[in-house]
Each structure stands twice: as C-alpha cells, then as structure tokens.
Design a protein around this nucleic acid. Structure first.
Lengths: 142, 142
DNA sequence: ATAATAAAGGACAAATTTGTCTTCTATTAA
DNA sequence: TTAATAGAAGACAAATTTGTCCTTTATTAT
C-alpha cells in the first residue's frame, strides 16, 4: 500500500463531495460513506480533519453537509499531504536519518527520481479530473 | 514511509549479515542490532522470519549466529517481498478493489510506470552492492 | 554428561491505525 | 423558542505494528 487507509478514504470522499459540489449540492456524512463504501464514523473523523485543514468546507444544521469551495485549485497532493504527510516523498528507504543528497544511502540515487515523479503526478492531478472520470462512468468510488 | 519499519530493519540487518558473511563470519543478534541501531528482540523476530523464508541462514549454539549463503542471488526485492509483501507494487492508490489495467482508476495510468520502475530498481539491486558501499565507507547502517 | 552459548518460540505490552458510539454545538424552519 | 437536522468533539474499542521478556531447543566445547 502506497497510501494509508485514511488517505484512500479521504481521496474518495473528497472526489464524491467535489462531484456533488459541482451541482451546488452539499452532502451528509451518511451519503458520503455509503457512496465510497467506507465506515461512517471513521469517515466523519477524516472529513473533520480535511475541513480543519481547509481542504473541504462544511455546514451544520438542516441543508448542511460537506462541500468544496476551492474545486479548481485542489489537487491530489493536497489530500495526501493533509492525511499522510510528506514522508512518502522524503524519508529514506532504509530508514537512515543521515540519508540525503549529500550523504546518500545506496538506494537514494535510484529512488529519488521515482519519488519525485510520484510527487509530480500527485501535484499535477486536479480533483476535477477525478470528478470528470467519475461522471463519465469510467470508474466507481468503491 | 515507503517501507515498513520491520522492512527497513530487515534490509539493514541483512546487509550487515552479508557483510560479515563475506569474511566467513557469523554474527549474533546482539551484534546485529547494535550495528544497525534497532531494538534487539524485535530484530531477532525479523531475522527469524527471514531465516524461515530462506533469505538468511542461522546456526544455534556457540560459534553460531546468522549468515548468508545465497549472497550472489539475494536482491533487495527479496527482502521487501518477504517482509512487506507485494502490495506496494500492485494495490490501487485509491484502494479500489476493481482497479486493474482493464478497469483503471484515474491514477492507474500515471502510477503504474512509477511502481514498475520501483520494482525494477529493487529487483536489480543485489545486496552485495549495499555491502560494497558499506565497506568503502559511503554510508552507515544507522 | 554438563555447562555455556545462541537462535527459536511464545506470551505479553506499548504505540499506532482503524473504527464505533454518544454527547455537544450550530443552524434552519416551523 | 422549540424541534429537527447535521457536523464537531470526545471517550472508547478493535486490529495491526512495533517492541519486550522469558523459556525452550539445538549446538559446541570441556
């Protein structure tokens, strides 16, 4: 697994919220967890942190729910960083603290471009792309 | 983190054992954990599983310890597979079970070559390379 | 045979991740 | 202003990963 379970849920939930947001709709946590096939309460926690980190927005009360304001600027990398942090892109494969460009472990040279590529792909992937593919039925969220 | 802590320890321990094995020496668990800066008992468990999976060999009793027989054929990928399994190279980024080449998630096309590249680098990296770099002082195991 | 050595194995414990449940707070509408 | 709705927040629990400790088993040398 490249990403944590929390991060997978976070991405799928955000895509679903983004999709509904395009149609000016807010979605409740029940609808979200049902749509992406994830545990309801756990997903609520994850969305909570996404809201706290300004990835998503939410409103309480009737006609409330989750929605997306920054739908253009939001990219996959934002969600990954918010839930899993930056470790995937920087921490040494062997777990050596000293490892760096100037003091590389024996895998550093080989792994760095791969990680950079992953970072690039994640950075260049807008959530709107996920929404488009979802709505044209190219894949399902669970 | 790309690899689990167990896997990081497994790699570093194997490199240390391989290094000593080249000099026809066996090493005890104390020496190993001291050399790589890992918890002794936990490392013992990890080496146990590596022995069970025929990555390393071991001998009990005085003058016993861990050693490496297949030092030429052993590659990084073998240790990664033995401890973390194959998930890093196959499981969907979004955690979708349906995801595959024929039914790809929106990141599949982008991530696949990256994972394949990682697999290739891991597969083409013999442990003897780690040993060589270690002995020429290019890096340290903790 | 016996003692010493060192890995194997099992039970247990801490930490982290994943997941649940209940109560609190804010918002809306009647 | 009250009732209903829905997210926020906190305490708790299960599962997994990481880590410890103690006993057993195998080997070697005396």
């Amino acid at each position: 697994m490249i990403l944590s379970k929390s991060c997978e849920y976070a991405i799928r939930a955000s895509v679903f919220v983004a999709s509904k947001s395009q149609k000016k709709q807010r979605v409740g946590i029940n609808e979200v967890s049902e749509a992406i096939g994830s545990p309801r309460a756990f997903t609520a926690k994850i969305l909570q942190t996404l809201v706290r980190k300004n990835i998503l927005s939410s409103a309480k009360g009737p006609a409330g729910g989750f929605y997306l304001e920054r739908s253009d600027s939001l990219h996959l990398i934002d969600i990954v960083r918010a839930t899993d942090g930056n470790g995937l892109f920087i921490s040494c494969v062997l777990g050596l603290r000293a490892c760096s460009d100037t003091q590389p472990c024996p895998m550093h040279k080989q792994v760095k471009p791969i990680r950079d590529q992953l970072l690039t792909e994640f950075s260049n992937k807008p959530i709107s792309d996920f929404v488009a593919d979802l709505e044209s039925g190219k894949y399902h969220l669970k």
